[in-house]
Design a protein around this nucleic acid. Structure first.
Lengths: 346, 346
DNA sequence: ATGAAAGCGCTAACAC
DNA sequence: GTGTTAGCGCTTTCAT
């Protein structure tokens, strides 16, 4: 275990001052280009690496962005993170990633850790059961910018990045109606989360516009666990009449449901058409392939990171921006295509 | 934006020395319990948060562990990370997570970042095309412990955490043979990765023990991309005779293949039986449900983090431990059950 | 273009 | 049980 090389060691070897070494290493313009070259090569030779703690301590900036997500294990989330990483890297920011595992409690702990790690900013997608943003207040008070994405709560001092979930929910439902569905079930998550609340609103709007009565029995809240599927199908079978379409706000759960529906003797989409949400790769595995709403995780990640970083660099203030809305599209596959001859407009 | 409270501020308010404040905040045993209480409550009152940069600078320890994985988007990986996080949290270590996106180049960059972030230790699962461990040498030279998990390369100074991939490959193949398969294809990844190399060895061993000739044409390397599936099925169709079983070392790819096989007119498992690897949730979505090898990601993550941390705390030296082998099990589902009446032993 | 020197906030050796 | 003090390695103001 060798001793760490410091700028003092380099300065000594070269008979110059540590200040010059520091400047050279940071590419300060006022340093002679030749001295700079000599210093840099010497640094490499001596295996120097900058001590970011000393640097951070001095500069009072960490160049670190915290990311808190409910779970890492979805295709969507991993593409979001890839997008964030790309942008952060390019701007020489580091990412600290933590998962709340869908629990506010863990989310609070994560926030605390981030706070103590002195992140320059925070990117957050909320846990399943987060009810308010109180646990973010300490950061907000300190002026640390927070940007929520996908699963958001509005806060006057924070920006949100989302898709138009209401419109997407509307389109998904409307598509089912166009396919001839008259009795559409809606399976979704905790309505405190904007994504689920807005999709429900869209669902209701589509029904209303098509003069289909809204029926509470047809809306079910779930935690999207595999275990809950059989119960859900039991429930569905007891409905009278049985639904002829389902809009499920999670592709994995939708896939599970399709499998269970078929096992229960229903044919999809003939008896029951299904539309999911997120365009997870599983949509192309389940049979029939799953119709779904696609939105681009990578883009969401990039936009989120970019906005935060430009705010940090004071190139752009996100304080005035309340929300950034990204695109989505309805992908029609076989799970929802009842009318095989009639082309569905997407 | 308020000014940060320091231990000096607290000391001043309380008319005591900063050293006492520091000790109290770090729960030093030699501090009077009452003083401790007073200090802690004052700290809270003043909104104090410790400056980890000053602390790290002083202590020359970061309490941070770096984690580099190929991708975050698998069920397996996210459970591994959950396990690591749990253990790290309990030991008050932080995690910095980065994905190499299966590229050595990115992996090298990640390693460099980790190095400069002065992680106390590193947990790594290698990228698809990593050929050697040269890029880890700077860390190894500095005495920073590195622990490889799942996708590993052996290094005399590093420990590996794996399952017995050879035996697992053997069991998977043997299971197909027991089901009556005589011509078993093997679809797998880059053979430089131990996991794929060992599983292939197991495959060959099972064939040999059952007097089935090994045939190179039946072993295909893939990057597991969705795009490559149709080509793979094309290839399979041109084999003569056509295989009656496939052992695929990735559940997602196996699921894609099953779908494609059915589309091509084969029935699974009757014409072609399939066994996958990893027990991803998708195994329960694809029809027929996928037989697979299950190993517990959470456990692997916990063991990895625990070993590293106890090494860091010098409670246990992992230097002498070359490898830690974890359990796995063969899960038999319908995708491989040709002989429906004969129970398969697992 | 370069140097001197102070100080970021904390910890720990040493003293009492 | 508590205080004094000297740095950890870097950046940056001010001076030259």
């Amino acid at each position: 275990m060798e001793k760490e090389t410091t700028i003092y060691d380099i300065a000594e070897q070269l008979n110059i001052s540590p200040a010059t070494v520091s400047r050279a290493l940071n590419d300060h313009p006022a340093i002679n280009i030749d001295t700079k070259k000599i210093i840099i090569s010497k640094a490499k030779e001596m295996g120097y690496r900058t001590n970011i703690f000393a640097s951070n301590l001095r500069r009072k900036k960490t160049n670190t962005i915290g990311v808190i997500v409910p779970r890492l294990n979805s295709y969507f989330m991993s593409t979001v993170l890839a997008g964030m990483e790309k942008v952060a890297n390019e701007a020489s920011y580091n990412l600290i990633i933590a998962q709340s595992l869908e629990s506010v409690k863990k989310e609070m702990a994560n926030v605390k850790t981030m706070f103590n790690s002195r992140v320059d900013g925070l990117l957050v997608s909320l846990a399943y059961d987060t009810e308010n943003l109180d646990h973010f207040e300490p950061l907000i008070k300190k002026g640390i910018p927070i940007l929520f994405f996908d699963r958001v709560l509005t806060h006057k001092k924070c920006t949100s990045i989302v898709i138009d979930n209401l419109k997407a929910g509307y389109e998904a439902t409307n598509h089912l109606i166009e396919q001839g569905c008259k009795r559409i079930m809606h399976i979704t998550g905790n309505l405190q989360r904007n994504v689920y609340q807005d999709r429900l609103k869209g669902y209701r709007l589509a029904l209303a516009e098509n003069n289909i009565a809204y029926c509470e029995d047809l809306v079910r809240i779930t935690d999207f666990s595999y275990q809950s599927v059989s119960e859900m199908i039991q429930y569905l079978k007891m409905l009278n009449p049985i639904p002829d379409g389902i809009f499920i706000t999670n592709d994995f759960y939708a896939a599970y449901c399709i499998v269970a529906l078929k096992q229960a003797g229903f044919s999809v989409p003939e008896d029951i058409a299904v539309v999911g949400f997120n365009d997870d790769p599983i949509a192309m595995v389940v049979e029939p392939h799953l119709s779904t709403i696609r939105y681009h995780g990578q883009e969401m990640g990039e936009v989120a990171a970019k906005s935060l970083i430009s705010h940090l660099n004071e190139q752009l203030s996100i304080k005035d921006t309340n929300a950034i809305i990204l695109h989505y599209e309805l992908i029609v596959r076989k799970s929802s295509l009842k009318a095989k001859t009639i082309g569905a407009k997407s």
